[in-house]
Design a protein around this nucleic acid. Structure first.
Length: 116
DNA sequence: TTTGTGACGAAAT
DNA sequence: CATTTCGCCACAA
């Protein structure tokens, strides 16, 4: 197994329900600055059973701009969106493109939360 | 070994 | 604004 992946998964587990974080933030908090892409890579292999007996809320990880990182209307996209809405994350439509944006997370706030 | 491709992101254009 | 360019780097061809 890859140690970085595990570290990333554990960091993702810190994101509280109803909140979200960006790939970049997770990378930083995992001690892997500048490695946002690696976060996406690792989330690709998140064990369904979870880690350390606890689930890994992969759906709470969005792009830095608040967008879901999947092709709109694709299976995964819809799943992730549903999960977020279920736990109260507000979604706002955006005019340009018919893409939907997750409520633009106040990144600083979340980073704060996770840090302290 | 070189090259292309990503669940990315910030800066430059 | 929207796009492109780069930086990052694991991974496959």
């Amino acid at each position: 197994m890859n140690a970085n992946y595990v570290k990333i998964w554990q960091t993702v587990q810190l994101i509280p329900e109803g909140k979200v974080a960006s790939y970049g933030q997770i990378a930083d908090l995992s001690g892997l600055p500048g490695r946002a892409r690696l976060v996406g890579k690792s989330l690709q292999f998140v064990p369904k059973e979870g880690v350390n007996g606890k689930p890994v809320p992969w759906h709470r990880v969005l792009r830095a701009n608040g967008q879901i990182a999947f092709p709109p209307n694709g299976e995964v996209y819809l799943t992730q969106r549903a999960l977020l809405i279920d736990e109260g994350v507000t979604l706002q439509g955006h005019k340009t493109k018919m893409s939907e944006f997750a409520w633009r997370p106040d990144l600083a706030e979340i980073l704060f939360y996770l840090t302290e």
